[in-house]
């Protein structure tokens, strides 16, 4: 369920670089969603992880953001949770 369009107002982070977690850093974009991913499983799941981040952002109503993600093998539900937390922190003025 897409929320109304939201805007990232400040840089925010969520998550960690512990095993099985992911660190998400979000900031204002340049008109669209840009994702920079560094992952221990980049070769195996790199595209999957980027897709989950993108879809979660859209679900949260974000269409303009720059995301830097450092992944240590997080599963999809962890990635979603970290992206959501990060968006909530980033949209607060």
């Amino acid at each position: 369920m897409a929320k109304g369009k939201l805007e990232i107002k400040k840089m925010a982070t969520a998550g960690s670089v512990e095993s099985n977690d992911i660190l998400i850093m979000i900031s204002q974009g340049e008109g669209d969603i840009e994702i920079e991913l560094e992952s221990v499983v980049e070769k195996q799941f790199g595209e999957d992880i980027k897709n989950v981040i993108r879809e979660t952002l859209i679900e949260e109503g974000i269409t303009d953001a720059k995301v830097i993600a450092k992944d240590k093998g997080a599963l999809d539900f962890t990635i979603k949770a970290r992206v959501r937390a990060c968006v909530q922190r980033g949209v607060e003025a």
Partner: peptide, 8 residues
Amino acid sequence: KLFSSRIP
């Protein structure tokens, strides 16, 4: 572990 840093 079955699940360890998403490595199958």
